[in-house]
Amino acid sequence: MIAADYPTWFPDEEIDGTYGFDEGALRRVAPVPAPEGFAALWRGWNARIRAVAPRFEAGEYASFGTHEAAEIRYTAGDGTVLGAWIARPRDRAPRVVVVHSHGYGGRERPEFARVPDDAAVVFPLARGLGALNTGVGAPSERDEHVLFGIDDPQSYVLGACVRDLWLTQNIADELWGPLPHYLVGESFGGGVGALALPWDDRFIGATLVVPSFGQYDERLVAPCHGSGEAVRRYAAEHPEARGVLRLFDASSAATFARVPVRIEAALWDAHVPPPGQFGVAAGFRDRELMVLPAGHAEYPGLTEVRQRAIAGGVDHLHRSVARVSSDPR
Rank of each mutant, 00 (worst) to 15 (best):
Thr8Tyr: 05
Trp9His: 12
Pro11Tyr: 00
Asp12Ile: 05
Asp12His: 13
Asp16Met: 08
Gly17Pro: 11
Asp22Arg: 03
Glu23Gly: 10
Gly24Tyr: 00
Pro31Ser: 03
Pro33His: 06
Pro33Glu: 11
Glu36Thr: 09
Gly37Met: 09
Ala39Asp: 14
Leu41Pro: 02
Leu41Glu: 09
Trp42Gly: 04
Trp42Met: 05
Asn46Gln: 15
Ala51Asn: 07
Gly59Ile: 08
Ala62Thr: 15
Ala62Tyr: 11
Thr66Gln: 01
Ala70Ser: 15
Arg73Leu: 09
Thr75Pro: 00
Ala76His: 13
Gly79Tyr: 12
Val81Cys: 00
Gly83Lys: 10
Ala84Gln: 10
Asp91Pro: 00
Arg92Cys: 14
Arg92Asp: 09
Arg92Phe: 00
Ala93His: 07
Val97Phe: 04
Val99Tyr: 04
His102Tyr: 01
Tyr104Trp: 03
Arg107Lys: 14
Arg109Ala: 15
Phe112Met: 04
Phe112Tyr: 05
Val115Ser: 10
Ala119Tyr: 02
Ala120Ile: 08
Leu129Ser: 06
Gly130Tyr: 01
Ala131Val: 11
Thr134Asn: 11
Glu141Arg: 11
Arg142Gln: 14
Asp143Phe: 02
Glu144Ser: 14
Leu147Ile: 02
Ile150Ser: 13
Asp152Cys: 11
Asp152Pro: 06
Leu158Pro: 00
Gly159Ser: 00
Cys161Tyr: 01
Arg163Pro: 01
Asp164Arg: 04
Asp164His: 12
Leu165Val: 06
Gln169Gly: 10
Asp173His: 04
Glu174Thr: 15
Val192Pro: 00
Ala194Gly: 10
Ala194Thr: 03
Leu195Lys: 02
Pro198Glu: 01
Pro198Trp: 02
Ala206Gly: 09
Thr207Lys: 03
Leu208Ile: 06
Val209Pro: 13
Pro211Ala: 03
Ser212Val: 01
Arg219Met: 14
Val221Phe: 01
Pro223Ser: 01
His225Ala: 14
Gly226Cys: 05
Gly228Gln: 04
Glu229Gly: 04
Ala230Arg: 09
Arg232Asp: 01
Arg233Glu: 00
Arg233Ala: 01
Glu237Asp: 14
His238Gln: 15
Pro239Leu: 07
Gly243Ala: 11
Val244Ser: 12
Phe248Trp: 09
Ser251Tyr: 08
Ala254Trp: 07
Pro260Gly: 09
Val261Glu: 10
Glu264Met: 12
Ala265Asn: 09
Asp269Gln: 10
Asp269Glu: 13
His271Asn: 13
Pro274Lys: 01
Val280Ala: 05
Ala281His: 09
Met290Ser: 10
Gly295Lys: 13
Glu298Arg: 09
Tyr299Thr: 08
Leu302Gln: 07
Thr303Asp: 15
Val305Cys: 04
Gln307Cys: 00
Gly313Trp: 11
Gly313Thr: 11
His316Trp: 14
His316Leu: 13
Val321Phe: 02
Ser325Val: 08
Ser325Lys: 13
Ser325Glu: 15
Ser326Gly: 04
Ser326Leu: 08
